[in-house]
């Protein structure tokens, strides 16, 4: 239960960061990706700010034997660069450019109750579901 409350606080603060940063505005996302047009570099600073903080905190936190509310760490340790990693990221990048939403900002934008945001989120869930079905047959090496 405590870990769920922690996750709630993380979701809440994360989305506040998203709204302040501009990530919930698809026009700004597409402007950021429009490198060869009217490029809007502002969203680059979201990554700069987030990584600057977490680069340091990650190292400090991982000095501990375990997290505060769990016995073990659940941080991915995989190192191989697989075709799935690259193809998946290519598809994600194309979808990101097409709708101007990545998963987090799309969920946060549901707060405004717009039809197209809802269409995006439902389609995203469907895409994840389709992956599950295909994965049963194809057994992707992710």
């Amino acid at each position: 239960m405590k870990n769920a409350i922690a996750a709630f606080v993380v979701g809440l603060t994360f989305s506040i960061g998203l709204v302040i940063s501009g990530m919930t505005q698809p026009q700004k996302v597409i402007g950021f990706l429009d490198l060869f047009g009217s490029w809007d570099p502002s969203l680059m600073f979201v990554m700069v700010g987030a990584i600057a903080v977490h680069f340091v905190t990650y190292r400090l936190i991982r000095r501990r034997k375990s997290p505060l509310l769990d016995e073990t760490w659940h941080v991915p340790a995989k190192k191989e660069i697989t075709p799935s990693l690259v193809v998946g990221s290519l598809l994600f990048g194309a979808g990101w450019a097409l709708g101007g939403f990545c998963p987090g900002p799309a969920i946060t934008s549901l707060a405004a109750g717009q039809k197209q945001t809802l269409i995006f989120v439902i389609s995203m869930l469907l895409g994840m579901f389709i992956f599950r079905i295909l994965d049963k047959k194809m057994k992707f090496q992710r």
Binding site: S42, G49, I51
Partner: peptide, 21 residues
């Protein structure tokens, strides 16, 4: 604003790591 939002996001993911690993 993007930088401030980014810093908040960085702190937020740090809470997840510290609490839930």
């Amino acid at each position: 604003n993007a930088l401030i939002g980014g810093v908040i996001i960085g702190l937020s993911v740090s809470i997840m790591l510290l609490m839930n690993g």
